[in-house]
Amino acid sequence: MTSQQVIFIILAVITLASGLVVVTNRNLFHAALAMMLSFFGVAGFYVLLEAPFLAASQLLVYIGAISILIIFAIMMTRRLMSTDESPFNSQWIAALFGTLLIGGLIIFVIVSVFSPFGDIIIANSAPPSLAVQESTVLLGRSFVDPDQYVIPFEIASVLLLGALVGSIAIARPEKES
């Protein structure tokens, strides 16, 4: 085993174990912390895949912003220290269905790309190039290249702006006239 494989296994154990804690722990605050650890493991994978930009973005966006907002919401809305909740709510069947669908999709993609029988399942698609290039530069250029991703990129920006304006509109106190 190479050292990269050892690191991969350690990261995988951290990510999956903390992910399991997220869904099984009844203490909401601890679950949120475990989710942060899980995100951290994913950032580790990005480092292992030589994508430092993605790793730093993962830390900045998921751990620095999203998890902290979730923790912030828990602090604001729950009572101190009495955070035991049932891990199930009324939507658990739908959630299970969605998870199974996504799991099936991921397994299908992995099998079709990497297994020796992959050519039978998807005849005409080439496997993705695994060569690591100047990924950050390529990523930056492809976001603003009209031939590549400029339209999805701009649409995502407008979506975020819409969400921002919408949240301000919702939070605005109603005027009494």
Partner: peptide, 13 residues
């Protein structure tokens, strides 16, 4: 090479 991002990410932690 992404030192600035690294600093921002670590500060947010």
């Amino acid at each position: 090479d992404v030192g600035i991002l690294f600093i921002l990410a670590i500060t947010s932690i």
